[in-house]
Design a protein around this nucleic acid. Structure first.
Lengths: 244, 244
DNA sequence: AGAATAGTGTCTATAAGACACTATCCA
DNA sequence: TGGATAGTGTCTTATAGACACTATTCT
């Protein structure tokens, strides 16, 4: 259009992974310490360049997950979060990244994989507050991922992905409380979850906890989308910029 | 890791635009007829390659919109829909596209711009049913865009973007009915919209319609996210793959 | 027994949906 | 006057949230 011999510019493509989990009732994200420049020594999301021109994007994400962490890359379901492609987001040139979101059940501390100097679970609140130095625009990506998880918790059975194969209703409630950051009434939560058809199904008899009556165990049910959704307590019922 | 002299592969990046609007109470999408190979003669979303390596993605989307259509590119708000990067989606090589979604008020037929042989509004139901030959994976992208619009209608004031600067409540209802594809009770809709604080605000007195009592006019209110959301009638209350 | 956690029953405020009814225009 | 569209009132049913109460374990 502009020139007779114009050629489309090329870009480098990376994939980045936001893996969220729950540890001690707090939301954590898996970060690695970068071993190479740029941002050497800073924390970053696991991820990396597309390996060859025919590699699928999700395949690349799974490959990076195996390479950089010891998580079971096969069982984690990855969901596309978005593209982050601001010019200048990477000092090496025009690097556009596709971010993926995954939810992991509570797991032992991950061992470092091959690529990363170190891979660790970090508290999301600390990461977002700016206490940690993060590479590239990864803080922004994590913030978007958390917001996405909050919304998905309302409308899908995502919460069960934070739990092990079986779980108690109280454990499920802790997922909601951690991700939403608010307390919920255990009694109302109990009935709400029970009557949302197909959300959870009974599994095994009971499990002893620290003290008190043992709780029944459940597994994730067949339903993926929740009707009706889990109602997140109504936020500020005021209008942002309204005139009276 | 695989080789001493490994270099990251490069890809070509395009942006594509899904512009939705309402015409004769039906959802339409703006498509152009491709003037060049591949898929010459097929319909496609407006879009194209990044022009230079420093161009911002949203900027590129706005530029393509101006080049290929005569829509007012400045006022349309673009929202990122996702990345589509399957190897093989474009016969020219590894081309990854970033799709954007925009909602336009009812407008006169767009004239063809510079790039496109022709630009026309097409009924979404016809496009998705497969009557039209679409280039690349654009049918899939449009399907995702429509689903996104459906959800956004529930939780945001997006519906007003389909209307002109002022509109009647019945016009707003037609937006919901067209996008959701279901009829709504006008009386209940009327009160629901009215009591959703900050959604719409009165503007001017009334407007004469074809027949019957003139309707009051409204403008979009300050509120972007709706509390409570507009309830889309509950879908099939059955479980997909449940065992009794 | 008492502490602690699991699970049930019940009341109230609110919202959704159905639908009869009134209001104001045009022909 | 009748037809058509705009707007209101009211009833029924379902749900969220509050919270008293019962059940079952451990120490």
């Amino acid at each position: 259009m502009t020139d007779d011999r114009w050629e489309p510019p090329v870009v480098l493509l990376t994939v980045d992974l936001v893996i969220l989990t729950l540890r001690e009732s707090r939301l954590h994200v898996l970060l690695i310490e970068r071993g190479i420049e740029p941002y050497q020594g800073a924390m970053a999301l696991p991820g990396g360049f597309l390996q060859h021109p025919e590699e699928d994007l999700v395949t690349a994400a799974h490959r990076e997950l195996s390479e950089e962490t010891d998580l079971d890359a096969e069982t984690l379901r990855l969901e596309q979060l978005g593209v982050y492609g601001d010019p200048g987001r990477d000092p090496r040139g025009r690097v556009v990244t596709v971010a993926y979101l995954a939810i992991a059940p509570r797991l032992p501390e991950p061992a470092a994989g091959t690529d990363a100097a170190d891979a660790r679970w970090q508290r999301v609140d600390r990461v977002l507050s700016g206490d940690l130095e993060l590479a590239f625009d990864h803080r922004r990506i994590i913030a978007d991922a958390v917001e996405r998880a909050r919304v998905k918790l309302e409308h899908s059975a995502l919460a069960t992905a934070f739990c092990g194969p079986t779980f108690t209703i109280t454990e499920l409630q802790e997922v909601y409380e951690a991700v939403w950051g608010i307390p919920l009434d255990p009694r109302n939560f109990y009935r709400k979850v029970q009557k949302t058809d197909g959300f959870i199904v009974p599994a095994g008899p009971t499990r002893k906890t620290t003290a008190g009556r043992p709780a029944r165990l459940f597994r994730a049910g067949p339903r993926e989308v929740l009707h009706p959704p889990m109602a997140r307590p109504t936020e500020s019922p005021s209008v942002q910029g309204a005139a009276p």
